[in-house]
Design a protein around this nucleic acid. Structure first.
Length: 417
DNA sequence: TCTGGGGTCCTAGGACCC
DNA sequence: TCTGGGGTCCTAGGACCC
């Protein structure tokens, strides 16, 4: 069973602002750049996803669309509440993304599953305030398709079960090839050229053809469409193999000092994430780039280094990152974005000792970082921070329409009068 | 005239996902 | 003024080994 939240970010904004029920809402990406979530009312206006927000300001005004900056603190918290609720119903659960989860049920009748889907949908709405769609199928790919139909076809009322469906061929014919999970833009084009236009045709493609033209990934998709499960439920949250922290700036940056602040801030965040999953890294990359949408001289570059020993010590990582930045910085360009990447990640337990340096985990450095993390957890992000990440942060992203952190900040908790 | 036949590991790039 | 920010997996090709 795939449970997927409807217009998740936009729905989150509605939870504590019920006056927005039935009103069109969009949520913008970082820097208020693109549209990343739209309610049904907005979709009905023909506004596409991932479009640049500034191109639609006129339409927003005309149709009284409520516009929000991304409030990830709020969305992450509500996501956790949704997931906790789902966990009460399913013996096994895979959190697939911030707004969707796969639930595994075995030994249940088809009718019972549909009924359970309805209960789950109703409970999540009642307890958390978020509307969800439920798709049920014998494989993940078919559950995805069922979910797609639950969302799209009104009469199913948000729950669709494709298990042993008497008209499965018709159902799959309704699903456009590009809407199949695992078929992206490139595959879509390729398959269309081969006259495979919908999920049913892909399912029924001859084996010889599939062997010849599909990769191993595509092969799995076909088998899954036939009801043979190839993609297992992943109930453990795997630790990340790479962590990227990058942002576009609120305005163009030319000054090296400001870039240093940004890189220091991003590395601070990446190091926090490393420690959160109890890991260290031994390879880091820094990159900067100008604004590709502007008719100005363009430049982008990156630099990497292998560290002497795996670590998650913020001051050291920041220092190295700033040195890498110095290697690639060129004067005279208007920079739009910078980022850091940490890779070659190993767990505390497995990180090798080097001959010359004590391992980070055995070190006072770790105790210091633990203390910093605890303080920042308790008193809020950046209560303690490294000075090189700056105080004014002129380069900070724009978030002009940010809603309150209703559930995670004392001052922002809604008041009932 | 004419240069083997296996492997492994790493990296870059591309495809996909949300 | 103004166009996001994360991830994963697979493959091909090169470097290297015997």
């Amino acid at each position: 069973m795939l449970v997927d939240c409807n217009s998740f970010y936009a729905s989150c904004e509605r939870v504590f602002n019920p006056g927005l029920e039935g009103k069109p809402i969009v949520v913008l990406s970082n820097n208020d750049g693109c549209i990343v979530a739209r309610t049904a009312e907005v979709k009905a206006l023909g506004i596409p996803n991932f479009a640049a927000a500034f191109q639609y300001e006129e339409i927003f005004r005309k149709h009284d669309v409520h516009v929000f900056s991304s409030n990830y603190t709020l969305y992450a918290d509500l996501s956790q509440r949704v997931m906790n609720t789902l966990a009460e119903f399913a013996p096994e659960l895979e959190i697939y993304s911030i707004d969707e989860a796969f639930l595994l049920f075995t030994g249940m009748g088809d009718r019972d599953l549909t009924e359970l889907g309805k209960v789950i949908r109703q409970k999540v709405k009642q307890w958390i305030g978020i509307p969800v769609s439920v798709g049920i199928g014998p494989t993940k790919t078919l559950a995805k398709i069922a979910n797609h139909i639950a969302k799209k076809v009104r009469k199913f009322d948000g729950v669709f079960n494709i298990m042993n469906h008497p008209e499965i061929d018709k159902v799959l014919e309704y699903v456009k090839i590009g809407d199949v999970w695992g078929v992206g833009r490139q595959y879509e084009r390729f398959l269309q050229q081969a006259h495979i236009m919908n999920a049913r045709q892909l399912r029924d493609a001859p084996d010889a053809w599939i062997d010849k033209y599909m990769t191993s990934v595509g092969h799995k998709t076909v088998l899954e469409l036939r009801g043979i499960s190839c993609i297992d439920l992943d109930t453990m949250i795997p630790s990340k193999k790479g962590i990227v922290s990058s942002r576009s700036f609120g305005h163009d940056v030319t000054d090296l000092k400001e870039l240093e602040e940004a890189v220091a801030s991003y590395m601070t965040r990446a190091a926090e994430k490393l420690r959160q999953q109890r890991t260290v890294c031994s390879f880091i990359t820094v990159f900067i780039t100008t604004n590709r949408f502007k008719d100005l001289p363009q430049y982008s570059n990156s630099a990497s280094m292998r560290l002497m020993a795996p670590t998650a010590f913020t001051p050291y990582l920041v220092k190295q990152a700033i040195q890498l930045l110095h290697k690639i910085y060129q004067k005279g360009f208007a920079y739009k974005k910078a980022g850091v990447m940490v890779t070659d990640i190993t767990s505390y337990e497995n990180s090798p000792l080097t001959f010359f340096e004590k391992a980070y985990v055995d070190h006072e450095q770790k105790r210091l970082m633990d203390a910093v993390d605890r303080i920042n957890n308790r008193y809020g992000r950046d209560t303690l921070f490294i000075a090189s990440s700056g105080i004014i942060k002129k380069w900070h992203m724009r978030r002009m329409k940010l809603s309150p952190a209703y559930t995670t900040k004392w001052e922002d908790i809604p008041k009932v009068k």
